[in-house]
Protein backbone atom coordinates (compact mmCIF):
# COMPACT_ATOMS: atom_id res chain seq x y z
CA UNK A 1 0.00 0.00 0.00
CA UNK A 2 2.66 2.53 0.88
CA UNK A 3 5.99 1.75 -0.74
CA UNK A 4 7.75 4.23 1.53
CA UNK A 5 6.43 2.28 4.48
CA UNK A 6 8.90 -0.49 3.82
CA UNK A 7 11.83 1.93 3.65
CA UNK A 8 11.04 3.67 6.87
CA UNK A 9 9.77 0.63 8.65
CA UNK A 10 11.10 0.41 12.12
CA UNK A 11 11.47 -2.75 14.01
CA UNK A 12 8.91 -2.60 16.75
CA UNK A 13 7.48 -5.03 19.18
CA UNK A 14 4.12 -6.21 18.04
CA UNK A 15 1.39 -6.96 20.50
CA UNK A 16 -0.41 -8.92 17.86
CA UNK A 17 0.96 -11.24 15.22
CA UNK A 18 1.24 -9.95 11.69
CA UNK A 19 -1.65 -11.41 9.82
CA UNK A 20 -1.19 -9.97 6.38
CA UNK A 21 1.82 -11.84 5.15
CA UNK A 22 0.34 -15.07 3.96
CA UNK A 23 -2.12 -13.71 1.43
CA UNK A 24 -2.01 -11.11 -1.28
CA UNK A 25 -2.88 -7.61 -0.15
CA UNK A 26 -5.87 -7.46 -2.45
CA UNK A 27 -7.70 -10.09 -0.45
CA UNK A 28 -7.29 -8.24 2.81
CA UNK A 29 -10.56 -6.24 2.75
CA UNK A 30 -12.55 -9.36 2.00
CA UNK A 31 -11.18 -11.11 5.05
CA UNK A 32 -12.35 -8.29 7.28
CA UNK A 33 -15.88 -8.21 5.97
CA UNK A 34 -16.19 -11.98 5.58
CA UNK A 35 -17.48 -13.04 9.03
CA UNK A 36 -20.31 -10.50 9.01
CA UNK A 37 -21.15 -11.20 5.37
CA UNK A 38 -21.33 -14.93 6.01
CA UNK A 39 -23.58 -14.38 9.02
CA UNK A 40 -25.96 -12.13 7.08
CA UNK A 41 -26.05 -14.29 3.97
CA UNK A 42 -26.48 -17.55 5.83
CA UNK A 43 -29.08 -16.40 8.34
CA UNK A 44 -31.00 -13.80 6.33
CA UNK A 45 -30.61 -14.08 2.55
CA UNK A 46 -30.36 -17.87 2.30
CA UNK A 47 -33.57 -18.38 4.32
CA UNK A 48 -35.25 -15.58 2.36
CA UNK A 49 -34.49 -17.43 -0.86
CA UNK A 50 -35.72 -20.68 0.68
CA UNK A 51 -38.95 -19.05 1.79
CA UNK A 52 -39.41 -17.96 -1.80
CA UNK A 53 -38.88 -21.55 -2.91
CA UNK A 54 -41.21 -22.96 -0.25
CA UNK A 55 -43.95 -20.60 -1.37
CA UNK A 56 -44.45 -22.82 -4.44
CA UNK A 57 -44.85 -25.99 -2.41
CA UNK A 58 -47.28 -27.55 -0.05
CA UNK A 59 -45.52 -28.84 3.05
CA UNK A 60 -46.23 -29.44 6.73
CA UNK A 61 -42.76 -28.86 8.25
CA UNK A 62 -42.19 -32.56 8.99
CA UNK A 63 -38.77 -33.57 7.65
CA UNK A 64 -40.17 -36.91 6.51
CA UNK A 65 -43.20 -35.46 4.74
CA UNK A 66 -42.83 -34.80 1.00
CA UNK A 67 -42.90 -31.28 -0.37
CA UNK A 68 -45.55 -31.13 -3.07
CA UNK A 69 -45.07 -28.68 -5.92
CA UNK A 70 -48.21 -26.59 -6.34
CA UNK A 71 -46.87 -23.78 -8.50
CA UNK A 72 -48.60 -20.47 -8.00
CA UNK A 73 -51.55 -21.94 -6.17
CA UNK A 74 -50.48 -20.57 -2.78
CA UNK A 75 -50.35 -17.09 -4.27
CA UNK A 76 -53.59 -17.29 -6.21
CA UNK A 77 -55.49 -18.42 -3.16
CA UNK A 78 -53.82 -16.12 -0.72
CA UNK A 79 -56.60 -13.58 -0.35
CA UNK A 80 -59.22 -16.24 0.19
CA UNK A 81 -57.24 -18.00 2.92
CA UNK A 82 -58.99 -18.17 6.28
CA UNK A 83 -58.63 -14.96 8.33
CA UNK A 84 -56.50 -13.27 5.67
CA UNK A 85 -59.01 -10.51 4.95
CA UNK A 86 -59.36 -9.64 8.61
CA UNK A 87 -55.61 -9.82 9.17
CA UNK A 88 -54.88 -7.47 6.28
CA UNK A 89 -57.50 -4.98 7.42
CA UNK A 90 -56.12 -5.09 10.97
CA UNK A 91 -52.59 -4.62 9.66
CA UNK A 92 -53.70 -1.32 8.13
CA UNK A 93 -55.44 -0.34 11.36
CA UNK A 94 -52.21 -1.02 13.27
CA UNK A 95 -50.12 0.90 10.76
CA UNK A 96 -52.35 3.97 10.71
CA UNK A 97 -53.44 3.77 14.33
CA UNK A 98 -49.88 3.88 15.57
CA UNK A 99 -48.93 7.01 13.62
CA UNK A 100 -50.54 9.53 16.01
CA UNK A 101 -48.55 8.02 18.89
CA UNK A 102 -45.30 7.46 17.02
CA UNK A 103 -45.16 10.65 14.91
CA UNK A 104 -47.85 13.28 15.48
CA UNK A 105 -47.92 13.45 19.26
CA UNK A 106 -44.12 13.24 19.67
CA UNK A 107 -43.60 15.96 17.08
CA UNK A 108 -46.16 18.22 18.74
CA UNK A 109 -44.65 17.64 22.17
CA UNK A 110 -41.12 18.25 20.88
CA UNK A 111 -42.11 21.53 19.25
CA UNK A 112 -44.19 22.84 22.14
CA UNK A 113 -41.62 21.98 24.79
CA UNK A 114 -38.61 23.26 22.90
CA UNK A 115 -38.26 26.12 25.39
CA UNK A 116 -37.35 23.93 28.33
CA UNK A 117 -34.04 24.41 30.15
CA UNK A 118 -31.14 22.07 29.72
CA UNK A 119 -31.07 20.52 33.14
CA UNK A 120 -34.81 19.85 33.24
CA UNK A 121 -34.54 18.42 29.77
CA UNK A 122 -32.06 15.76 30.89
CA UNK A 123 -34.39 14.61 33.66
CA UNK A 124 -37.43 14.41 31.40
CA UNK A 125 -35.39 12.60 28.79
CA UNK A 126 -34.39 9.89 31.23
CA UNK A 127 -37.99 9.39 32.41
CA UNK A 128 -39.73 9.55 29.05
CA UNK A 129 -37.28 7.10 27.54
CA UNK A 130 -37.76 4.46 30.23
CA UNK A 131 -40.50 2.41 28.46
CA UNK A 132 -38.10 1.76 25.59
CA UNK A 133 -35.94 -0.27 27.98
CA UNK A 134 -38.72 -2.66 28.91
CA UNK A 135 -39.00 -6.04 27.22
CA UNK A 136 -42.19 -6.60 25.20
CA UNK A 137 -43.34 -9.48 27.40
CA UNK A 138 -42.85 -7.41 30.55
CA UNK A 139 -44.78 -4.56 28.96
CA UNK A 140 -47.59 -6.94 28.04
CA UNK A 141 -47.73 -8.37 31.56
CA UNK A 142 -47.78 -4.93 33.17
CA UNK A 143 -50.57 -3.60 30.98
CA UNK A 144 -52.60 -6.73 31.38
CA UNK A 145 -52.54 -6.04 35.10
CA UNK A 146 -53.18 -2.29 34.83
CA UNK A 147 -56.07 -2.79 32.40
CA UNK A 148 -57.53 -5.81 34.16
CA UNK A 149 -61.36 -5.61 33.95
CA UNK A 150 -62.14 -5.91 37.65
CA UNK A 151 -58.93 -5.38 39.60
CA UNK A 152 -56.79 -3.22 37.35
CA UNK A 153 -56.02 0.29 38.53
CA UNK A 154 -57.49 1.91 35.42
CA UNK A 155 -60.87 0.30 35.94
CA UNK A 156 -60.74 0.97 39.69
CA UNK A 157 -60.22 4.66 38.95
CA UNK A 158 -62.86 4.78 36.21
CA UNK A 159 -65.33 3.10 38.53
CA UNK A 160 -64.47 5.39 41.42
CA UNK A 161 -64.67 8.61 39.41
CA UNK A 162 -67.48 7.96 36.96
CA UNK A 163 -68.95 4.73 38.38
CA UNK A 164 -68.43 3.09 34.98
CA UNK A 165 -68.95 -0.57 34.30
CA UNK A 166 -65.62 -2.43 34.11
CA UNK A 167 -64.08 -2.00 30.66
CA UNK A 168 -62.84 -5.26 29.16
CA UNK A 169 -59.94 -3.83 27.20
CA UNK A 170 -58.54 -7.10 25.86
CA UNK A 171 -61.69 -9.20 25.53
CA UNK A 172 -63.93 -6.62 23.88
CA UNK A 173 -63.64 -7.13 20.14
CA UNK A 174 -63.98 -3.42 19.43
CA UNK A 175 -61.43 -2.28 22.01
CA UNK A 176 -58.71 -4.91 21.98
CA UNK A 177 -56.91 -3.68 18.87
CA UNK A 178 -56.83 -0.12 20.23
CA UNK A 179 -55.53 -1.36 23.57
CA UNK A 180 -52.66 -3.07 21.74
CA UNK A 181 -51.98 0.02 19.63
CA UNK A 182 -51.90 2.10 22.80
CA UNK A 183 -49.40 -0.24 24.47
CA UNK A 184 -47.16 -0.23 21.41
CA UNK A 185 -47.36 3.55 21.31
CA UNK A 186 -46.65 3.82 25.03
CA UNK A 187 -43.30 2.20 24.41
CA UNK A 188 -42.46 4.36 21.41
CA UNK A 189 -43.73 7.86 22.18
CA UNK A 190 -40.83 8.80 24.44
CA UNK A 191 -38.12 7.70 22.03
CA UNK A 192 -39.85 9.38 19.13
CA UNK A 193 -40.18 12.62 21.09
CA UNK A 194 -36.44 12.55 21.77
CA UNK A 195 -35.68 11.97 18.10
CA UNK A 196 -37.81 14.98 17.17
CA UNK A 197 -36.29 17.24 19.81
CA UNK A 198 -32.82 16.20 18.71
CA UNK A 199 -33.79 17.15 15.15
CA UNK A 200 -35.16 20.48 16.40
CA UNK A 201 -31.96 21.43 18.19
CA UNK A 202 -30.13 20.98 14.88
CA UNK A 203 -32.30 23.61 13.20
CA UNK A 204 -30.57 26.93 12.99
CA UNK A 205 -32.12 29.51 15.29
CA UNK A 206 -31.57 32.23 12.71
CA UNK A 207 -34.49 31.11 10.59
CA UNK A 208 -36.83 31.39 13.53
CA UNK A 209 -35.50 34.77 14.63
CA UNK A 210 -35.71 36.18 11.12
CA UNK A 211 -39.29 34.97 10.83
CA UNK A 212 -40.37 36.44 14.13
CA UNK A 213 -38.74 39.79 13.29
CA UNK A 214 -40.78 39.74 10.11
CA UNK A 215 -43.84 39.41 12.32
CA UNK A 216 -44.67 35.77 11.73
CA UNK A 217 -47.03 34.26 14.29
CA UNK A 218 -46.01 31.21 16.27
CA UNK A 219 -48.29 28.99 14.24
CA UNK A 220 -46.88 30.39 10.99
CA UNK A 221 -43.37 29.64 12.18
CA UNK A 222 -44.34 26.06 12.99
CA UNK A 223 -46.29 25.59 9.79
CA UNK A 224 -43.93 27.24 7.31
CA UNK A 225 -40.50 26.80 8.88
CA UNK A 226 -40.33 24.06 11.48
CA UNK A 227 -42.42 21.41 9.77
CA UNK A 228 -40.67 21.75 6.39
CA UNK A 229 -37.30 21.65 8.13
CA UNK A 230 -38.37 18.61 10.12
CA UNK A 231 -39.75 16.83 7.07
CA UNK A 232 -36.81 14.41 6.70
CA UNK A 233 -37.32 13.30 10.31
CA UNK A 234 -41.09 13.14 9.84
CA UNK A 235 -40.71 10.97 6.76
CA UNK A 236 -38.16 8.73 8.43
CA UNK A 237 -40.25 8.18 11.53
CA UNK A 238 -43.42 7.66 9.50
CA UNK A 239 -41.70 5.06 7.37
CA UNK A 240 -40.30 3.20 10.36
CA UNK A 241 -43.64 3.29 12.10
CA UNK A 242 -45.52 2.00 9.06
CA UNK A 243 -43.00 -0.73 8.30
CA UNK A 244 -42.51 -1.93 11.84
CA UNK A 245 -45.98 -1.47 13.34
CA UNK A 246 -46.96 -5.06 12.60
CA UNK A 247 -43.69 -6.44 13.95
CA UNK A 248 -43.79 -4.43 17.15
CA UNK A 249 -47.34 -5.52 17.90
CA UNK A 250 -46.57 -9.21 17.46
CA UNK A 251 -45.36 -9.84 21.02
CA UNK A 252 -48.38 -8.08 22.55
CA UNK A 253 -50.79 -9.99 20.35
CA UNK A 254 -49.10 -13.29 21.17
CA UNK A 255 -49.01 -12.67 24.91
CA UNK A 256 -52.27 -10.78 25.43
CA UNK A 257 -54.92 -11.83 22.93
CA UNK A 258 -53.56 -14.57 20.63
CA UNK A 259 -55.26 -12.67 17.83
CA UNK A 260 -58.67 -12.77 19.50
CA UNK A 261 -61.35 -12.08 20.42
CA UNK A 262 -62.67 -13.55 17.17
CA UNK A 263 -59.67 -12.49 15.15
CA UNK A 264 -60.15 -8.82 16.01
CA UNK A 265 -56.48 -8.25 16.89
CA UNK A 266 -54.73 -10.61 14.50
CA UNK A 267 -52.44 -9.08 11.91
CA UNK A 268 -50.50 -10.33 8.95
CA UNK A 269 -47.40 -11.33 10.90
CA UNK A 270 -49.38 -13.07 13.57
CA UNK A 271 -51.25 -14.95 10.88
CA UNK A 272 -47.97 -16.01 9.21
CA UNK A 273 -46.81 -17.29 12.55
CA UNK A 274 -50.05 -19.24 12.98
CA UNK A 275 -49.94 -20.72 9.51
CA UNK A 276 -46.31 -21.70 10.02
CA UNK A 277 -46.19 -23.07 13.53
CA UNK A 278 -49.80 -23.78 14.53
CA UNK A 279 -51.41 -25.15 11.36
CA UNK A 280 -48.08 -26.10 9.70
CA UNK A 281 -49.23 -24.72 6.35
CA UNK A 282 -45.73 -23.80 5.26
CA UNK A 283 -46.74 -22.98 1.69
CA UNK A 284 -49.33 -20.42 2.76
CA UNK A 285 -47.06 -18.89 5.32
CA UNK A 286 -44.20 -18.57 2.84
CA UNK A 287 -46.32 -17.11 0.06
CA UNK A 288 -47.86 -14.55 2.40
CA UNK A 289 -44.40 -13.70 3.77
CA UNK A 290 -43.09 -13.09 0.24
CA UNK A 291 -46.01 -10.81 -0.60
CA UNK A 292 -45.40 -8.90 2.64
CA UNK A 293 -41.73 -8.58 1.84
CA UNK A 294 -42.46 -7.17 -1.61
CA UNK A 295 -45.26 -4.92 -0.36
CA UNK A 296 -43.17 -3.36 2.38
CA UNK A 297 -40.20 -3.12 0.01
CA UNK A 298 -42.28 -1.04 -2.39
CA UNK A 299 -43.50 1.13 0.48
CA UNK A 300 -39.93 1.72 1.64
CA UNK A 301 -38.87 2.61 -1.90
CA UNK A 302 -41.63 5.21 -2.15
CA UNK A 303 -40.49 6.76 1.10
CA UNK A 304 -36.83 6.79 0.12
CA UNK A 305 -37.77 8.55 -3.13
CA UNK A 306 -39.83 11.07 -1.21
CA UNK A 307 -37.11 11.78 1.29
CA UNK A 308 -34.39 12.21 -1.34
CA UNK A 309 -36.69 14.74 -3.00
CA UNK A 310 -37.01 16.57 0.30
CA UNK A 311 -33.37 16.26 1.22
CA UNK A 312 -32.57 19.87 0.23
CA UNK A 313 -34.33 21.04 3.39
CA UNK A 314 -31.46 19.57 5.31
CA UNK A 315 -29.11 22.43 4.62
Amino acid sequence: MSPSGAVYARTRTRLLPRLNIAWPRRLEPYLYVLPAVIAIVFWIYRPLAQTFELSFYEWNLLPTAPKVWVGLQNYSRIFSLPDMGVALRNTFVYMLGLLPLSVLLPMAIAIVTDNIGKRARTIYRALVFLPMMMAPVVVAVIWRWILHPTNGIVNLVLEGLFSLEPVRFFSDGNLAIWAIIFITGWKLTGLSTLVFSAALTNISREYLEAASIDGASRWQIVRYILIPLLSPTILFMTMLSLLLASQWTFAYINVLTQGGPLGSTTNIYYLLWNYGFQSFAIGWSSAAAMLMFVGFGVLALVFLRLSSRLAFYDN
Binding site: I44, Y45, P47, L48, T51, L54, W273
Partner: peptide, 17 residues
Protein backbone atom coordinates in the same frame (compact mmCIF):
# COMPACT_ATOMS: atom_id res chain seq x y z
CA UNK B 1 -26.54 -6.43 1.54
CA UNK B 2 -26.25 -5.00 5.02
CA UNK B 3 -28.29 -1.91 4.25
CA UNK B 4 -31.13 -4.00 2.84
CA UNK B 5 -31.52 -6.46 5.71
CA UNK B 6 -33.89 -4.23 7.64
CA UNK B 7 -36.40 -4.72 4.84
CA UNK B 8 -36.42 -8.46 5.40
CA UNK B 9 -38.95 -9.17 8.13
CA UNK B 10 -38.20 -11.90 10.60
CA UNK B 11 -41.26 -13.77 9.41
CA UNK B 12 -39.82 -14.14 5.91
CA UNK B 13 -36.85 -16.11 7.23
CA UNK B 14 -38.17 -17.92 10.30
CA UNK B 15 -39.27 -21.21 8.75
CA UNK B 16 -36.04 -22.06 6.88
CA UNK B 17 -34.00 -20.93 9.86
Amino acid sequence: LFALTWLVPFQATMIPN
